[in-house]
């Protein structure tokens, strides 16, 4: 009977838990996206050598540092590993929620951030993971594109693309309002009812799960204890019971001590019976050891 009960509760708990787990099996290995690009550059961003060229902005939407070194940039669907971003250099680390710029100028001799293709060659650009097969992100952009105008995500990392009102190399594509989440929430829930219902449901769910689990544990624990008692009754003496056996004299002494304490009965006036640890007053002056020589 108790077995069935425990099984039923266990099944319910497992079901509840499983319903909460949403494992994204298709998660990409690196969380990097192509965020913005500019094809024709006549009066826009200038590289370290004073040249202007098309550029690609990569964005790290995660909250951890990601090394883009070893990944690939390409403008050819048939050649994913067209430009390998060199590895082992600190400058390929992309900080959380930050951007990194690559110049599509076909001048790799200028350094890590200069690709071996230009953006005019095709209307496709992709970022591949180190395994050369996992496409981290790709985009098909409209050509021809007006000079000095960029095509990008309307908000950093978000799916909608379009021509941007102003270019923003290595910056946010849209103005970010830090308190936006709470403002939007308050607009949609002006009386706090949604927050109250949603939050209380989650609080209850969390504690309900704990409750279910520990009710189950309690049943199991009681069951185990009963089993042990049953076995003990059959003649198997439990070690714990032997260990915890306290002689009657001890009970009598404790009872006597409490009685004396409560009734303030004192047979020896200068002695206090206590269960508290007592530190003896000790002084080096009264110690013989300090009076002895420390050498032979």
């Amino acid at each position: 009977m108790i077995h069935n009960y425990i099984k039923m509760r266990l099944s319910i708990t497992l079901l509840l838990l499983l319903s909460l787990f949403s494992v994204n099996m298709s998660a990409k290995s690196l969380n990097l996206v192509i965020n913005e690009l500019l094809v024709t550059n006549t009066e826009n961003l200038v590289d370290d050598y004073g040249n202007r060229s098309g550029w690609i902005e990569i964005y790290n939407p995660s909250h951890r540092v990601i090394d883009i070194g070893g990944c690939y940039l390409t403008n050819d669907t048939l050649e994913p590993a067209k430009y390998k971003i060199p590895e082992g250099d600190e400058i390929t680390l992309v900080a959380p929620l930050s951007h990194i710029i690559f110049y599509a100028d076909n001048k790799t001799h200028f350094g890590i951030f200069h690709t071996n293709f230009t953006l005019q060659e095709s209307n496709y650009i992709a970022l591949y993971d180190r395994d050369q097969t996992t496409c981290l992100d790709s985009v098909v952009y409209p050509l021809p594109m007006p000079a000095n105008f960029s095509y990008g995500r309307l908000k950093d990392g978000e799916p909608e693309w379009g021509m941007l009102a102003k270019t923003s190399p290595a910056n946010n594509n849209a103005f970010v309002d830090k308190g936006a989440a709470s403002k939007v929430f308050a607009e949609r829930d002006p009386y706090g009812v949604v927050l109250a219902i949603a939050s209380m449901s989650v609080v209850f769910l969390a504690l309900l799960l704990l409750y279910t689990l520990f009710s189950l544990t309690a049943k199991f624990s009681i069951y185990v204890t009963k089993e042990r008692i049953r076995k003990t009754a059959k003649g198997e003496k439990s070690e714990t019971i032997v260990e915890t056996h306290i002689p009657a004299e001890v009970y009598a002494s404790i009872a006597m001590a409490i009685h004396e304490y409560q009734e303030e009965i004192h047979d020896v006036e200068d002695t206090i019976l206590t269960i508290q640890r007592v530190a003896k007053t000790y002084s080096p002056w009264s110690s013989k050891i300090y009076g002895l020589r420390n050498f032979l």
Binding site: G192, L195, A196, S199, M200, V203, L207, L208, L210, Y211
Partner: peptide, 16 residues
Amino acid sequence: LLIGAAAQFGIFGAYA
């Protein structure tokens, strides 16, 4: 445990 959950209503009442 459930009493501990119920008392959190104060948070959301004050929020409202």
